[in-house]
Design a binder for these strands. Structure first.
Lengths: 209, 209
DNA sequence: GGCGGTTCGACCGAGTGGTCTAATACTGGG
DNA sequence: CCCAGTATTAGACCACTCGGTCGAACCGCC
């Protein structure tokens, strides 16, 4: 919710500002990020910045909104499954999309990771907590769908499965990050397949294979 | 590495100071923690604090050292395994100890979680990074032991397994934290068993059961 | 009295998020 | 073409917190 004036800005200017903010917030998180430094990075004056955003909070929300929108667009869809096998295939495809997203847009990737961090710390900026809750609901829905298709076990609390799934996802991201240079673009599908196998092991009903 | 004078303080005074610091650092992490606030909490003057610790960094290291020492003592040992089955049993016992540690000493638990956080963010205070590296080496050794006993698969990169294991552990802690009130002391073993089953699913060789 | 170890808190410079005024750029109407 | 009035920009300034310093005071002891 930037002040409406911001929307009227020409595209490159908007991008410059949002990019600078995304970098700073991504690198340091909300608290540690310096509004002054963002202003400096964006090559804009303080007055101008406060003319477009009411405060640091406002800018943060705007930047996160953008990143999340990108993520949903690029990763979340399509997801179509009508039996257990196609469910796991769809997961694999989605995971591969997620990897590509991280690879090609590290700036937004860092922001998305900060959402995961809020989950890990159980605290953080209210906006992070809210996004994280949405993320968990979204994952919960996915798990339920899997259960309905017989792809996911039902003998554990759903929220435990959700936590485990998200944790594995983060672990994968982290492992990927520490092997960044070795991951060529066409190794993505292979990696996704390996990772989703871990998800299956955790999530599949006993003796499903 | 507090200044040697600190060691000569009487026990309750030391405890007051370290507790205050552990709380603040545990709640907010190194950067966000306020040295001034710790001083206030400890009910001590600034001059006295700087008389015992050379700076914020020094205090942080000291506090983390204490917490880690406690953890190792209470959780790390004993761990004895001479075949696949006893390996997983030992894991279960260790996980149960870890749960008890978290339950009965939330102050230190929060500090230990901040180490996990450094892993998740791939950055943080140098001391956190170092501790985290030690933690990963330690887990890596555990995985190797498991592999030697045929309890852990060898078809994945070791460090991926380590990342996955630590992630599942954190997920368990988090899930536990959000069900804090429901966990009675004697439910610990049951929970540990459930959780280690997840570890087994991820870590065991194909078709081991 | 004087000495060393200890405690105190005023003070410092740097950096924070945020405000405000004055100057500038841009607009449409006469 | 000029001018009034609005939209935009610049950056000095504000109060505050931060980690850290320092000289004075205090205390028990010889």
């Amino acid at each position: 919710m930037p002040l409406p004036r911001f929307q009227k800005l020409d595209e490159p200017r908007k991008k410059t500002i949002l990019d600078a903010a995304a970098e700073e917030f991504g690198e340091r998180g909300f608290e540690q990020a310096s509004y002054n430094r963002i202003i400096e990075r964006a090559g804009i004056s303080k007055g101008a910045m406060y003319y477009y955003f009411s405060d640091k909070d406002d800018l943060y929300r705007t930047v996160l909104d953008h990143a999340l929108a990108h993520w949903l667009l690029q990763v979340g869809f399509p997801f179509e499954a009508d039996d257990a096998a196609s469910f796991w295939n769809a997961c694999e495809a989605m995971y591969a999309r997620s990897l590509r997203f991280m690879l090609e847009d590290p700036k937004n990737a860092a922001l998305c990771l900060s959402v995961a961090q809020a989950r890990e710390r159980l605290e953080g900026h209210p906006v992070l907590l809210m996004l994280n809750e949405r993320m968990m609901e979204w994952t919960g829905a996915l798990v339920s769908q899997g259960q309905a298709l017989g792809a996911v076990r039902e003998d554990l609390p759903t929220d435990l499965i959700v936590h485990a799934a998200l944790a594995l996802m983060d672990a994968g991201d982290r492992w990927l990050a520490s092997h960044w240079s070795e991951i060529t673009a066409d190794a993505v599908d292979d990696t996704a397949s390996k990772m989703v196998d871990l998800f299956r092991r955790v999530g599949e009903p006993e003796g499903a294979r």
